[in-house]
Design a protein around this nucleic acid. Structure first.
Lengths: 143, 143
DNA sequence: CTACTTGCAAACTTTTTGCTTGCGA
DNA sequence: TCGCAAGCAAAAAGTTTGCAAGTAG
């Protein structure tokens, strides 16, 4: 229930003394509703009809605020720009070499690798990230 | 034995019709010898005493060549620039939130997650990547 | 009211590109 | 010699910054 998630996120924003501006809410709301891991520029383009005067800097400002509060995660791949993900459930990504699509998938939580890594490296481990790379189904079909 | 790895890599370059220039060899050799996952700029700085006239474009050109031949891997994290890793053994990274250090670690190969991901997503999976994030030992000690 | 945000433009950083000259095989 | 590679500089792309004006609480 994304509506619920938005509500909780907004409470969290308020709780940390951050103002709820229309732009801020729209960016957050868009991130929570979309499944597409958009770039900053994609967010900008999606919202420019609603906020014709909004600047990219506002997008970046807000992404930083959300990230610092743990409301979103930043994903960086080989390509130029970062992508942002408001799905906070533990999940993993499959990335297509061919078309660049990022598909979420859920499997058993690999948090045991955190413990293994901690034991080996001496790190105090807080989180992990895992991705697989390959060719997505539709790119396989299109030869 | 890094000398061996370099030799093999150079054979691979020759085999694909790529020339072995001094700059190319120096960049590759540096990547294989270092443990530090350097950025393009760091490579540039390390080699500028040896090649005062070398341009950054040469670094990028060669990194692209190496990557296309599978001799190195590109790592992208939240920070600005890509890092490059010539360690081709299956291994994982622990990244310190505090100081940014990247520590390699080896554990059981997680390639079974590739199969799981393939089954769930329909991807033809070729590789995977896993990282843990946290605080490294020395940052823990330095409070 | 006032501190936080926005909008804007310029600056900055990283990476890419086009083109000429140079050099490895 | 031939064609790939290096050097150079300019451009592109993404992100950050400084500041004036606006507004949420």
């Amino acid at each position: 229930m994304p509506g619920q998630q938005l509500k909780i996120a907004i409470e969290k924003l308020k709780g940390s003394g951050v103002r709820i501006t229309p732009q801020r809410q729209a960016i957050l709301s868009f991130l929570i509703e979309t499944m597409t891991h958009p770039t900053a520029d994609e967010i900008y383009k999606m919202l420019e009809t609603k906020f014709p005067n909004m600047s990219v800097a506002t997008i970046y400002n807000n992404l930083k605020v959300f990230k610092d509060l743990g409301l979103i995660k930043e994903l960086t791949y080989g390509d130029a720009s970062s992508r942002f993900d408001a799905n906070l459930q533990t999940h993993y990504h499959a990335i297509c070499d061919r078309c660049g699509k990022i598909e979420d998938f859920y499997t058993e939580n690999l948090s045991n690798v955190e413990q293994v890594a901690a034991k080996i490296t001496g790190f105090k481990v807080a989180s992990h990230r895992m991705e697989v790379y390959g060719t997505c189904r539709s790119c396989q079909l299109n030869h």
